[in-house]
Amino acid sequence: MRKQRFTLWLIIAIFVVAIYSIFYFKLFFVATKQEQSVTVILKSMNVRMDFWQAVSRGAEAAAKEMGLELDVQGPLQENDADDQLRILEEAIEREPEAIVIAPIVDERMPKALAKVRSSGIRLVVINTLIDMTPTPVIVSNDHLEAGRLAGEAALIATQGIPSVAILSDYENSKMSDERLTGLQDTLKNYKDSVQGVYYVNDSEEKAYRIAEKLLASDKAFNTFITLNESATLGVAKVLQEQKKAGQINLIGFDSTVDEIQLLESGTLKAAVIQKPFNMGYLGVKTALKLIDGKKTDPITYIESNVITKENMYTAENQKLLFPFINK
C-alpha cells in the first residue's frame, strides 16, 4: 500500500517534470521568431529632404526595437513616379514580409500596389490616403487635425476675433485641401472669419504679391494662414518689409530653417509641424502587426504640434524642429 502510493507519486512527479519541460521549451520556441524583413519605400531618399530622412529614421528605430530586417529605398527626386514604381517592382521580387510605401500620386500606382497584395506581401501606405479597394492600412499625418490646430492658433493669436486670409498652393492638392477643411471647420463658428482663400502655386513671389495686394486693400483682416512653406516665406517677406510683423499674424505649416528664423523673430506666430519620425516608426510597427496577424486600425493618424516662439526651444520641440544632429 505504502509502496504503491510512493510509485504513484513518483509517476506524477515525472509527468509534471515532463510537461513542465515541454512547455518551457515550447515557450522559447515560440518566442524566437524568424527574422522578418520589411521594405520601406519613400517618396524621396534625398539626404536634403529632412522630412523623408526623419521618416527613414523612425522606420529604423522601429526595426531596431522589433529586431527585424529593414530596407529603406526611394527615388532621389521627390516626384519621380517612374523611379518609385521601378523600386516597388524590385521590392516585390525580393518578397519581403511587408512593404511600407509613401506612394507618389500616379495613375499606375493603385495597380502596382494591388500587385504587392497579390504577391502575398503585407501593404502599409504612409503619408497619403489612397483610392484603392480594399483600402490598405494607412499611417498618415492628420492634415485635417493640423488645419484645426492652425485655426485654433489663429483664435489664440487674435484673442477670438479671427479674420483670416488663407494662402494655399494648388486647388487639387489633397493635403492642402484637408488642411483647409480643418481650418474652415474651426473658423466657421466665427463671423466673417475667413476673408478669402488664395492659391499661390508653390510660388513665393506669387504669395508675396497676393499678400501685398491684400495688405494694400482695405480689408480688415488680422491673420494670414499659409498652407505651405513658399507661401509662408512670401507673406513673411511682405510683413517684414512693411514692418507689420507682429501686428498681422502669420501662421504656417512645417519647419524649414527659414521658418524657424521667422518663428524666432516673431514674424511667424505659429507653425504647425508634422512628426515624420513617428510616421516612419508607426508605419513599420503597423507592418509588423500585419505580419503577426494582429488587429490593426485601418487608419493611424500622426498628430501634429503647434510651435510658437515661446515653446520652440523646449526639449521636445527642439527635437521636432531640428531632427538631425549636424556633424
Binding site: 531596431k64 516608426y281 526639449a315
Partner: peptide
C-alpha cells in the same frame, strides 16, 4: 530629462 535616447521623439509623443 532625456539627454540622449535613440527613441526620444517616441517617448516625447508617448508612443514609447
Amino acid at each position: 530629462n532625456i539627454v540622449y535616447h535613440p527613441q526620444q521623439q517616441l517617448i516625447d509623443s508617448q508612443l514609447r
